[in-house]
Amino acid sequence: MTVTTKQPVLSAKGIRKTFGRVVGLDGVDLDVFPGEVLAIIGDNGAGKSTLIQCLTGALVPDEGTLELDGKRVSFRRPQDAKDMGIETVYQSLAMSPALDIASNMFLGREIRKAGPLGSVLRMLDRKAMREKSMAAVQQLGIRTIQNPGQRVETLSGGQRQAIAVARAAAFGSKLVLLDEPTAALGVRESGLVLDAIRALRDRGLPVILISHNMPHVWEIADRIHIQRLGRRAGVITPSSHDMTEGVAIMTGAKTLDTGKE
């Protein structure tokens, strides 16, 4: 693919983020191009989660710049990125366990009833939210979730993860980021998430996927950003390097010539 000639959808330069004395990110560049799946791999603590949080307004970087479609942007809060069509599955999943599935799906973008009940009394259209939630879940192919009125705390970790993925897939219109979205999923559900990622890519949406599952990454990614010790160790593709080489770069056993992608 000749994606690199296109303009990146999102381009991050020199992102730095520290937590007190801990350096989470030490000047990271990242580009994601239209219609590609960019995987991010790296050891625990390499800064993967911090990186995508800096791309989505969940964290505000200390230094560095973000460009969306070539225009400078600055996300001060998650809503800023959402407003631009960027949806994220955070590693923490960002769900309120006490609320039901539909309320979580539509948290922050609730649907109101039509007419004065909605405009004057601001009444929620629970039916619409439940139906749309079910549609989003079914779109993903998840069959273990039947009742959108069920509270999230009664769901298994895998079911919660599926809901979070369904939410991001349903609302993402520019870019979707997923931080270890299959960690709690079984083989079948993981496969569904991978299918969902392919479907997003087929719609032309770029996807950033953090995963520890190397076979998944090599199966689905167009390019692989390797994160190591708060820096980008390099960017490879599944055809340029095999898994063993990728893991070697990730752990520092092997280095990649910088500047070359």
């Binding site: 809060r77 960002a94 948290l107 929620l124």
Partner: peptide
């Protein structure tokens, strides 16, 4: 009772009390 049970504000009050960080990440102020 109506506001808590049937409006977006109510959902958000519960979300903020239940999981403030999740509420923030979901885009709620």
């Amino acid at each position: 009772g109506f506001a808590l049970g049937f409006t977006a504000w109510g959902r958000r009050v519960y979300a903020v009390g239940d999981a403030p960080e999740a509420a923030r990440l979901a885009g709620i102020s």
